[in-house]
Design a protein around this nucleic acid. Sequence first.
RNA 1: GGCGCCAUAGCCAAGUGGUAAGGCAAGCGACUGCAACUCGCUCAGCCCCGGUUCGAUCCCGGGUGGCGCCUCCA
Length: 498
Amino acid sequence: MTLRIHNTLTRQKEAFVPLQPGKVSLYVCGVTVYDFCHVGHARVYVVFDVVQRTLKKLGYDVTYVRNFTDVDDKIIGRANKNGESCDQLTERTIAAFYKDMDALDIERPQVEPRVTGHMPEIIALVQQIIERGHAYEVPGEFGGNDVYFDVVSFPAYGVLSGRSQDDNQDGASERVSHDTRKRSQADFALWKSAKPGEPSWESPWGQGRPGWHIECSAMSCKHLGASFDIHGGGKDLVFPHHENEIAQSKAANGQDFARYWMHNGFVTVDSEKMSKSLGNFFTIRDVLARYHPQVLRYYLLTAHYIAPLNFSDKSLDDANRRVLYMYEKLAAADELLARTQVAAGPELPVVQKARAELLEALTDDFNTPKALASLSEPLQVLSQALEKPKDQANQKTVAQVRAFFGEAAALLGLFQHDAAATAAEIIEMAKTLRFPAGSEALASVERLIEERNAARANKDFAQADVLRKQLLDLGVEVGDTRQGTVWRPNLGQGDSAV
RNA sequence: GGCGCCAUAGCCAAGUGGUAAGGCAAGCGACUGCAACUCGCUCAGCCCCGGUUCGAUCCCGGGUGGCGCCUCCA
């Protein structure tokens, strides 16, 4: 099956042909580790997790590299503010990063390089760029030299972002303070001379540290080679970060750099980009305090990765209901299959169709909304079959659809957990959020339920219905089952804002 | 100012040159003491104006409305 990828470089969907048959090299820009990740970060890494899973499913031997930026102005600033070392800050942040990623079932890349571990490679790369005449030194503020990339010396500058050098001049001249040491205002730092008290490394230009962009050129080259298949990241990295990476890498070795560029759209809040600087962000752990990780993951996959994704309670609540429903159906299937011997047989058309649609969707530029839609029909068939579980044909349907969801799980990173347990977790989260243990709210719900049960026992149904209405007003749905009365919060009517 | 993206039902969201997936919500029916859950059924002429075409939501041009990048940002 042919994989098609929208390539930022050409702004077109192209058939994917790897550099080496059977192998895919993938580099995704990681995070600068000075703070917790927000939902925007979650989206990138969930998206590329699905990319990576799809590539594996297609039989490729995937080398996935995702870096940590652990030297940076913001890290230094935050560490100083906290009164701790940069190392302490970055180590702690990386641990938190893993906790978030693991919760979202994001698989670890094969290589996770850190900038601090690649100084020799970075320095060598900068030297190479200087030697080839694409960078120059200027005196730094506190001794040592800064090294800048000479944009004018590299005519191809702008291929990715579609800007001419004149465009950049115009824009930059209004907002960026002029640095008279730079030959062109578009020139960017490859190496920064150290200021007192900052982490620094010995280099041919004195004590200093790398500029932001050079690290990715150095690390991708080391772990994937000068030329590799796919380079990804958030849309905001197209310019200048990725543009600069291309310039540096090509200037250094003259070879092709990444062949396919993938950029995911932003997570927005009220249609505005979620970002640290705007302050309109929600950390992953903020969200996971209110929604199950599977719900967040599902939600992040409900839009195509290129499109913007507007973050809202309403959307999460929709996802919450749907994911709970799906897990409950899978749990019911598991329960049936655990006590039933189902004979094997030819695969049902509905499963064959769904599998084909799922794969087709993912191989068409990782169309996850379409992929999720492909699960609906088999799920419906499963639900119908579960209505009459003694029917042998239905049992077969349940077994086959359940098995198919196992396959889908591997691709989407959903439904990989025990279904009954996950469904229970989702309900429990909603309960404890709205009716915390020991709270008056919980006590009153339980009191009403008892009263209602007493009324029902006395056949006083009028009173029972009054109490049901009261519970509903509290956001509680009551269900009378053979096992007794159960209740759950009315998902999606929460008053809490994210 | 430069470059670019988006505009599909109440909400979210796919998609195709030939009369629009899926989800949530909603309505109706079944089930139920009544309900919830569940199952079944119902539910869009695709921002506006031109053009190309036998035919456009999908192609081209213009407009309007959102948004992004050009400064750190996933």
